[in-house]
Amino acid sequence: MAEAVLKITENKNGSVMVLELAGEIDAHTAPILKESAEKKISEGNVKLVFNFANCTYISSAGIGVLNAILNSVKAKGGIIAVSEANKTITDTFKVMYFTKKVQLYIETAAAVKDLQ
């Protein structure tokens, strides 16, 4: 059985950085997400949208990274949002109370528009 893989591509829309996540986010791949997001923040991006359209799984390790990133960008006056999460991932966000902290969008374009 192959280990989980996570690929991240970036797409800048005005002042909003969209990180498109493809694969699974578990304790094995969460550090990839953390490194990528922290790099974008260090480059001055504090408005981040995480596009989950091609992401099939997230565990607490991934949500923990997002929670830390949220804190980091908020300290710099920024914000994060989640878009296009499937039913299972949306449920996981709810189970871990993350929907209290971050807005989930059906469409990435709507998230980008709101964060501009």
């Binding site: 565990s59 607490s60 923990g64 830390a68």
Partner: peptide
């Protein structure tokens, strides 16, 4: 409920639920 910014502490509560 995990604290703001916390990276850990989410998982055990999930499987206990």
């Amino acid at each position: 409920e995990p604290a703001d910014g916390a990276e850990g502490g989410f998982g055990i509560g999930v499987y206990r639920r």
